[in-house]
């Protein structure tokens, strides 16, 4: 369960979130909103990348303020641009890097790296340089590096924005298949229509919270009326 209570946050003079309170227990949660509406800041609250200036964020009872390490073990985060997330030169090295804190035996580490790369069709690219991968492959590699830790939650910040149609379909299929709870920020409204719940952010407020069809209709109406 994700519990966000009375959260407000500002960057300098700019308020980005205002008094947001929500409890999220569903398995697939979408987050939509115009640029600058606060949805990325909201996403970053969930793994402690942003600590709220007021209010609290709890993930399965763990407070992001005092228990960030435990929160990050539970919450994986996929950024919009995989080139910012992949930090090691080779494919297998980047996935193995995620497992370094666990201090696993080499055989266990190799097994887990093999399993996740095989799952996302990257097994034949194990020793390839990361920069030589296509956009979709890079995002799959970034996703593999997140999932190899078996997080209970995966937050995805516009995971397909930089991808072409084919790679977008690849990533969306991978997201559909995840066992973890997914919180996905996206401008792809049709993809989020298959989710269980959608939060709509507007000027830092949680403007709508409900079923996908109603949330999308609210959002589209709010954008076309301006």
């Amino acid at each position: 369960m994700i519990e966000i209570e009375g959260v407000s946050h500002a960057f300098g003079d700019r308020t980005v979130l205002q008094d947001v309170s929500v409890r999220l227990g569903e398995h697939r949660i979408g987050v939509i909103g115009a640029n600058g509406s606060g949805k990325t800041t909201f996403a970053r609250l969930l793994n402690g990348l942003v600590l709220p200036q007021s209010g609290s964020v709890r993930i399965d009872g763990l407070d992001t303020r005092g228990q960030a390490k435990q929160v990050r073990a539970k919450v994986g985060f996929l950024f919009q641009d995989p080139d910012n997330q992949i930090v090691m030169p080779l494919v297998e090295e980047d996935v193995a890097f995620s497992l370094k804190p666990l201090k696993l035996a080499t055989s266990d580490l190799d097994r887990r790296v093999d399993a996740v790369l095989g799952r996302y069709g990257l097994a034949n690219f194990r020793t390839h340089p990361a920069h030589a991968l296509s956009g979709g492959q890079k995002q799959l590699l970034a996703l593999s590096s997140v999932l190899v830790r078996d997080p209970a939650y995966v937050v995805l910040d516009e995971p397909t924005t930089l991808l072409d149609l084919k790679n977008k379909a690849l990533i969306e299929a991978a997201i559909d298949d995840l066992a973890a709870t997914v919180i996905c920020i996206s401008h792809d409204l049709e993809f989020l229509r298959g989710f269980e719940r959608i939060l709509v952010f507007e000027a830092g407020y949680l403007a709508f919270d409900g079923a996908p069809d109603a949330a999308i209709a609210f959002y589209v109406a709010s954008q076309t009326c301006q």
């Binding site: 990050r72 073990a73 930090v87 590096s145």
Partner: peptide
């Protein structure tokens, strides 16, 4: 800056 956030997110 973005890489720094990613490293923090990766623990």
């Amino acid at each position: 800056d973005a890489i720094s956030d990613a490293l923090i997110a990766r623990g």
